[in-house]
Simulated scan of single mutants.
Amino acid sequence: MTLTLENRSQNKESSLTQALRQIQQLNSKIALLEQQLQDYVHQQQNLIPAIAEICVSPMQEVQALRILIYRGEAACRQYLRSVLMKRKKDS
């Protein structure tokens, strides 16, 4: 009887320890995802002044912002480069 109670107690402790370890792993993953989100937002915010500086018309600004929102930073940078190249070509 005593052995059975000890085994149950050990199993409960083992389950609690395992659950605590899983919670700690999830907290680590959440912290990593939060950092990645902050980095992503910061990168996008850095593009907004560049959009305002490079785009000469409101339509270009709207297009650049749409690309930034829907396709991401790399596509927006590519669009801004194409705007600059077109401007140089037209000059």
Rank of each mutant, 00 (worst) to 15 (best):
Q60L: 03
L32R: 09
D90Q: 11
T17M: 09
I67E: 01
N46H: 12
Q22R: 15
I67M: 01
A52Y: 15
L84I: 07
L5P: 11
L20N: 12
A75R: 04
K88N: 15
G72V: 07
A52K: 15
E61H: 03
S9W: 03
S91K: 07
T4I: 12
S82D: 14
T2Q: 12
T2Y: 04
L5N: 09
T2I: 15
C76S: 01
L68C: 01
E53H: 12
R21F: 15
R81M: 11
Q45V: 07
R8F: 08
M1T: 15
M85N: 10
K86H: 11
L68E: 00
D39N: 07
L20I: 14
V56G: 15
R81Y: 08
G72D: 01
V62L: 07
S28F: 06
L32E: 13
L33M: 08
S14L: 15
H42Q: 07
Q25T: 14
D90H: 05
N46R: 14
L16I: 09
S82M: 05
C55G: 02
I54C: 02
I69V: 09
L37W: 04
Q63P: 02
E34W: 02
Q63G: 01
Q24W: 05
Y70F: 10
D90V: 04
E61V: 05
H42D: 11
Q22T: 05
Q25H: 13
K29Q: 13
D39T: 07
H42S: 12
A19Q: 09
Q24Y: 06
K88E: 15
E6L: 14
L3R: 10
A19S: 14
Q25V: 13
S82E: 13
R66N: 12
Q36E: 07
I67H: 01
E13C: 04
I69T: 10
E61Q: 05
E34K: 12
L37A: 10
E6G: 06
I51G: 00
S15F: 07
S14A: 13
E34I: 04
Y40P: 00
N27K: 13
T17G: 13
Q35C: 08
L80R: 00
